[in-house]
Design a protein around this nucleic acid. Structure first.
Lengths: 221, 221
DNA sequence: GTACATTTCAAACAAGCGTTTGAAATGGAG
DNA sequence: CTCCATTTCAAACGCTTGTTTGAAATGTAC
């Protein structure tokens, strides 16, 4: 068996298990068993479990990140500031294109992203901001331009709120799909969830800062 | 040493470590070492690690949940439907009151809640919906009354989006505090984060369903 | 076909985990 | 002080984890 075949079998088995059970709760023995390779193959081909996790994520990041960066650059080159819904809409097509990388690619990637942020605290955050910081910066700049009423700190918090929404929803998307199907008899593919997310995120990020706060203070007295 | 003293030392040590590192990444040896009790004390007093986790959460849930339920019942008894920001504002005071249960209680509880939802998939969700389902149902009812334009499925998704925001923000609140303090020189206590959250959540939950979707479809062409 | 490098494999390693055990210590009640 | 139940303690158990090892198998070039 060629080097590439073995590595790919490992990556394919690993990403499914990682997406379903998380990184910590997936053992190398499960991975190598599903991939039908020897236990030692992971350490031989990737060096360590940590490096395998990064390789799994990199397969998707190196596809989706350049496409996002291109779209962000196009919007930044325009004369007028882009409206927030259009900035967020940039994510849709590059994410859906991951279906062409491999079947279920979009769901897998978003679940892996969710796992990466919730399982091992901070590792993925540092990895992404180190390797793809320029992409993130362009996105933040576009959001700032689209929401001139918000200062930088407010945008920082609201973007992290949004990250939480996405990451948590995707990490537990399978459970949510099941509940939604049972209780509301509705179709639940990843694309429909993404399209449900965008209005929520756009409204949350662009929310007025004062009014709900005042009515809250009133209510708590 | 009395039974209560030992149990409390274990609970105190456990909740700090759980909040900081998560349930899976905190060992009984760390807990009993910090609590200055014998390793076997956890199994003797609580039965198992799983039961300890539930006991840690119960200390806060049994305080906060009845207070929330009372407030929800008061709002449901009113003649007119409550506006969404006021419904969400109900959470503020009961959560802040946890500071009186013990110092840093609010932060600890919310971090534990975040850990519980992200660490072991589904366990906490079932535990809460089983023991406090009536509280949750009253809250959902209030949200539905405040947002008559949204059908039940849309509210289901948006409340889970909001849960993701809260849970993710709180689970990684320490890291976010550090970044915010370094980059924006701003105070970062749990109350200010809660007050930042409310407008975001209120706007997201009550977002219009159509407009952002249309402009997105236009942008992706 | 021999020689060499690459890849696979079964086996073992050291470390950590939650849990259990049985004896020692401690605490009140009679 | 004695008795008995409660609580502590050191030690070990059985299991899983990621990683390493050295020999066997495979592939490749001469």
């Amino acid at each position: 068996m060629s080097r590439e075949q073995t590595q790919q079998k490992i990556l394919d088995a690993a990403e499914s298990l990682f997406a379903e059970s998380g990184f910590n709760d997936t053992s190398l023995r499960q991975i190598t068993s599903n991939a039908e390779v020897n236990l030692a193959a992971v350490n031989y081909h990737f060096g360590s479990k940590k490096a395998l996790i990064q390789a799994v994520l990199q397969r998707y990041l190196q596809v989706v990140m350049p496409r996002l960066e291109l779209q962000f650059e196009l919007l930044l080159a325009r004369q007028k500031a882009t409206r927030l819904p259009e900035v967020l809409a940039v994510f849709v097509q590059p994410l859906l294109d991951l279906e062409q990388v491999k079947p279920k690619g979009t769901t897998l990637f978003l679940q892996l992203l969710g796992r990466g942020y919730t399982d091992v605290q901070g590792h993925l955050r540092k990895f992404i901001s180190h390797h793809y910081g320029s992409v993130l910066n362009k996105f933040v700049l576009l959001v700032q331009q689209s929401c001139p009423a918000l200062d930088a700190a407010e945008i920082f918090w609201r973007l992290h709120f949004s990250l939480g929404t996405v990451v948590f929803t995707m990490a537990s998307s399978e459970a949510l799909f099941d509940i939604a199907a049972a209780d509301y008899q509705q179709e639940s593919d990843i694309e429909s969830v993404i399209r449900r997310l965008l209005p929520y995120l756009a409204a949350g990020i662009a929310a007025p800062v004062n009014h709900p706060f005042d009515s809250m203070a009133q209510a708590t007295l």
